[in-house]
Structures are given as structure tokens and as C-alpha cells.
Design a protein around this nucleic acid. Structure first.
Length: 438
DNA sequence: TAGGCCATCTGGTCCT
DNA sequence: AGGACCAGATGGCCTA
């Protein structure tokens, strides 16, 4: 459904017609009705425009973004609503709450989104009312001393003889009450700010542990959540299937539902990071070979503007290379050479992600005895190549594994530090470790 | 300039 | 009463 001017147009091909209709109505053109009749079956009036005199296009000085058509995206579900609609079904399946086929999965998602779209449209009405209510509430606040009278007036205006509202009467707003209310509001605002900052900090932490991390080009909130969901899902699939994933399906899983720019970013990271894997594990290496760091296009590559930037071109001082971060010759996904000077890429903050199925354990930089007693460190799906990182290859999961991984612990980048698992999960990872190292 | 993303303010609701 | 959480509204910033 395309959005245009004052209407939702149910078919993109009708956008131009809708434009014409908009202009006719705006210009009080007599042909407006004719156009409207023709388009009627395909139009849905913008809910927030109902009952409002048309003033399109808005003149100078009018906040065009506040104007209905441009506010259309805001009718979409909020981030959390979307998140739940997208993530919850997968999480449920992953955790065994529900069991359905893959085919039904995508259908369910589409249905969910469809519901959302429908709800969004309906929401317009609700919001209109809500907005009206809010403005009335605001009016009450502004009119402080008259609020009780206003309320009574409202009743009289509507019904005349209607009985007065029952319930507690609003207390008159004295200056002291207004002041208290103000202070309360300010405190609430401060709390809300803090709360949102905490939420954002948590999201930042999440950004650091999903497969693609860049300090300067941050994933958006919703994309971070989507990628995290996909990442969890991909890891779950590996556990379920018990075999190394195909690089293509791994990338596809990670990029499922992501926007094109994010897909490019993630694919770029994985392409970069899988370089080692690709050249070592593909007998027909040419298929995935990334010659001279130029990241030539193969059937599964994604065009990444950043990767095609001059900095990334062969011969430039900033061309991308894998980077030794002090883990022997470990190659970290997202890691780039120090020679890659672009501040945009902070590959070393990315978690170890790999498509070759090798796990490794990261040890905290300095582990207190207490921490060591209570936790062992999470396994990461690592980009360590078996042949290039023999130390990592031999790591074991669980407490002993954590200790064995401490050889390079001082080099662990900060983002990994707060990732740890409780001991009661250790057997699972030991089992995993055994599997992946057989 | 439209659209995406974000921060902030705000009022409502629920809970303690 | 007050805090946590939520969602709507709004305006700023950035990018294609």
C-alpha cells in the first residue's frame, strides 16, 4: 500500500492519480469528485486528516513533517511492538514453546506484519482520539484554576441536562499544586531520560556482541535487535543440526529481515571475516575467493558501499585486511588491519563470528577468583581458523576450557568482558566443544 | 526534500 | 503518592 498525500493508495500504480486527486481537491477543482469516484475503491483516507480542512500542499512556514502524509511512517508499529511480533515467534520455536515448519514461519511473520499494518491504520483513529484527549488534558493543566469548570462546561455543552459526572471532583489547582506538579513532572522526565539511556546502553552492549559492529556507523535499534535475533537463531540452528553451517545459508540467516544497508554491512563483515574460511575450506576456492582484499563479487556477496570505497580498494593504504589482535594468528570477523585507517570500521569490537564452526573461549582480561568461581566465559562463535589459531583450536568449554583459554586473555577486547555464562550450563558447552573438535 | 532514526516530553496505566 | 513502563507527539539530524 503506497502512501500519498491525503490517502493511502492501495495500489502503487495509482499514486499519480492520487496526486491528481489531491491537487484537484486542494484547488477546489470541479473534477475532484470524478477522480475521487474513480479512485474510491483504491483509496483509504488518511485517518489523521479526517475532519480537517485540506490545506495541501502546505505553505511556507508550515511544518511539513508534522503534516499528515509525512507522518505516515509513524503509523507503523513501534519498535517494541515490531520486535515482539518478529522475534517472539522465533524465540518460542527456538525454545521449543511451539513447533511448526519453516514454511509456516515466514507465513506467520507475514501475517503478523499484516496485522500490524492493519492495526496501524486502525490505530490512526485511536490515536486521533488519544491525541485529542491528550490535548484536552494539556488544556486542563494550562488552565489550572479553571479545570473543574472546564470539565463541567464540557458536560453542559454535550447534553445540557446531563447529570454531572460522578466520582472525585478535580481539586482546584493552586499555585502550590501547580508547582508540585511541575516538579513531579520534571522528576519523571529525568527518570524517563535515565531509563532510556539505560536502555540505549544495553542496546550498545548488544551491538558489540552481534556479528557486525562499527562504532561510527551504528546499527539502528531495530536492526540491532533483528540481527541479534538472527544470530541467536543461527547459533540455535547449528546446535540443532549439529553440523557446520553452509556459509551462504549462514549469511542469509543473519541477514534475514534486515534492511539493505544493514545487510550490506553484515555481509561485508562476514565476507571479510570469512575470507580465511573461504580460502581454506572451499576446494574450489575460486568460488569464494576474495582476491587481494578487493572483495570481488561472488554470487552471494552483497554490494557494500563501504567496502567499495577508495579506502578499501587494493593498492590504497587503507585496504581491508584481516588483523592480528594478539591471539596468535587468530583472524577475527570484522577485524581489520591497522593499515585500514578508516575510523568507520571498528572490527576488533565485533564478537568472534565465523562460518567454519570453530568455537573458542574468551577469557576475561583479569579474572578475580570470585568471578572464576562463579562463571566461566561464554563461548563465541569464533572466526579463529583451526590452522592459524592452534591454541584456540584446542580450547575446551566449561571451567577448564575457560582456564585453557586464558593464555591470551589479556588481549581480550573489552566488549567481551561482560559476557559469561553460569556454571550450570557448562555441560552443554563441553558437549558442544567435544563435537566441534572431533 | 522525503523518509529514517533518534531524543525528549508527556500523559496514561499498573503496581508497590 | 510515586515509580516503572509504555506509547503518542514532536522536532532535530542525517542521508539518499
Amino acid at each position: 500500500m503506497a502512501w500519498h498525500h491525503n490517502w493511502y493508495v492501495t495500489h502503487p500504480a495509482l499514486v499519480e492519480d492520487a496526486t491528481l486527486l489531491s491537487l484537484c481537491v486542494w484547488g477546489r477543482d470541479s473534477t475532484a469528485k470524478k477522480h475521487q469516484a474513480r479512485l474510491q475503491p483504491h483509496l483509504l483516507e488518511c485517518p489523521c486528516r479526517r475532519g480537517v480542512d485540506l490545506d495541501w500542499p502546505p505553505g511556507d512556514g508550515v511544518n511539513k513533517r508534522a503534516f499528515a502524509p509525512h507522518r505516515a511512517p509513524r503509523r507503523r508499529a513501534t519498535m517494541l511492538t515490531r520486535l515482539f511480533s518478529e522475534v517472539l515467534p522465533d524465540v518460542q520455536k527456538l525454545s521449543g514453546w511451539v513447533d511448526d515448519s519453516e514454511g509456516e514461519d515466514s507465513k506467520t511473520k507475514e501475517d503478523d506484519l499484516g496485522h500490524l499494518e492493519d492495526d496501524d491504520l486502525d490505530d490512526g483513529d485511536a490515536r486521533e482520539g488519544s491525541s485529542r484527549d491528550q490535548s484536552e488534558m494539556a488544556g486542563d493543566d494550562d488552565d489550572d484554576d479553571d479545570d473543574v469548570d472546564d470539565e463541567d462546561c464540557g458536560d453542559e455543552n454535550e447534553g445540557g441536562d446531563k447529570p454531572k459526572k460522578r466520582g472525585p471532583k478535580k481539586r482546584k489547582m493552586t499555585p502550590a499544586r501547580i508547582e508540585r506538579s511541575k516538579v513531579r513532572r520534571q522528576k519523571a522526565n529525568a527518570r524517563e531520560r535515565t531509563r532510556m539511556h539505560d536502555l540505549n546502553s544495553a542496546l550498545d552492549n548488544l551491538r558489540k556482541v552481534v556479528p557486525c559492529y562499527s562504532k561510527t556507523q551504528k546499527l539502528s535499534k531495530i536492526e540491532t535487535l533483528r540481527l541479534a535475533k538472527n544470530y541467536i537463531w543461527a547459533l540455535g540452528e547449528i546446535l540443532r543440526n549439529g553440523k557446520r553451517p553452509d556459509v551462504v545459508s549462514y549469511v542469509q540467516t543473519l541477514c534475514k529481515g534486515l534492511s539493505q544497508p544493514t545487510t550490506n554491512l553484515v555481509a561485508g563483515c562476514l565476507q571479510l571475516n570469512s575470507r580465511n574460511f573461504l580460502t581454506e575450506q572451499c576446494p574450489d576456492g575460486a568460488r569464494f575467493h576474495v582476491p587481494n582484499s578487493s572483495f570481488s563479487v561472488h554470487p552471494y556477496s552483497y554490494p557494500c558501499p563501504r567496502l567499495s570505497s577508495p579506502q578499501c580498494q587494493p593498492g590504497s593504504s587503507g585496504h581491508m585486511r584481516t588483523h592480528n589482535y594478539g591471539y596468535g594468528d587468530a583472524v577475527y570477523p570484522g577485524a581489520v588491519s591497522p593499515e585500514y585507517n578508516s575510523p568507520d570500521y571498528e572490527g576488533h569490537h565485533s564478537p568472534p563470528v565465523c562460518v567454519n564452526g570453530n568455537f573458542s573461549v574468551r577469557q576475561q582480561e583479569s579474572v578475580s577468583p570470585d568471578a572464576d568461581r562463579n562463571y566461566h566465559y561464554a563461548m563465541h562463535y569464533s572466526g579463529l581458523s583451526a590452522s592459524r589459531a592452534p591454541a584456540a583450536h584446542g580450547l575446551a568449554f566449561g571451567p577448564s576450557g575457560a582456564r585453557s583459554g586464558s593464555a591470551h586473555s589479556e588481549n581480550v577486547p573489552p566488549p567481551f568482558h561482560d559476557v559469561h555464562l553460569h556454571h550450570d550450563r557448562a555441560p552443554v558447552y563441553e558437549e558442544l566443544n567435544a563435537f566441534f573438535h572431533n
